[in-house]
Amino acid sequence: MSDTKSTPAPDSAHASPGPTELSRRDFLSEVTMGALGVAGLGGAALTYQYFSPNVLFEPPMTFRAGNPDLYPENSVTFLQDQLVYIVRTAAGFYAVSAVCTHLGCITQWKPEADMIACPCHGSKFQPDGKVIAGPAPRPLPHYSINLAADGELLVNKLEIIKPDQVLNV
């Protein structure tokens, strides 16, 4: 408080040369605006945190896909509950996402045309996820697929693997 009392009046402040000429009014308004800015940023950050849920009640990302013998060779099986295609080729198994990379519609397996088709904007994919036609920007991702201890297939949708990685059984 004693500092503010000893601060010279604005007129004499202009008279005395200094590195920066900042009047008390300008200084206070800058401090106020700065404080408001910091509070605004902090508030925005807190609001963002508040709106990002920490616990989600969504379907689990790992699931068992049953015994490998369920899938005949050279077949594409759509697991509707998980939105995943289990593809078995001569080389082995892989799991392909059934969610279109364009805008998230659920694709459909068309056995007669040997392709995966999206109903929303007409994207078409090969069974291994490569884009044949349409606006889809990326191929369908492959999920990690392994054998559980009891011999069942185990798919982890959180882990995306390269398309050339195939599970041999």
Binding site: Q80, D81, L83, C105, I106, Q108, P119, C120
Partner: peptide, 8 residues
């Protein structure tokens, strides 16, 4: 969520 109508 598991079935997209055609067309959506």
């Amino acid at each position: 969520p598991l079935l997209t109508p055609n067309p959506a």
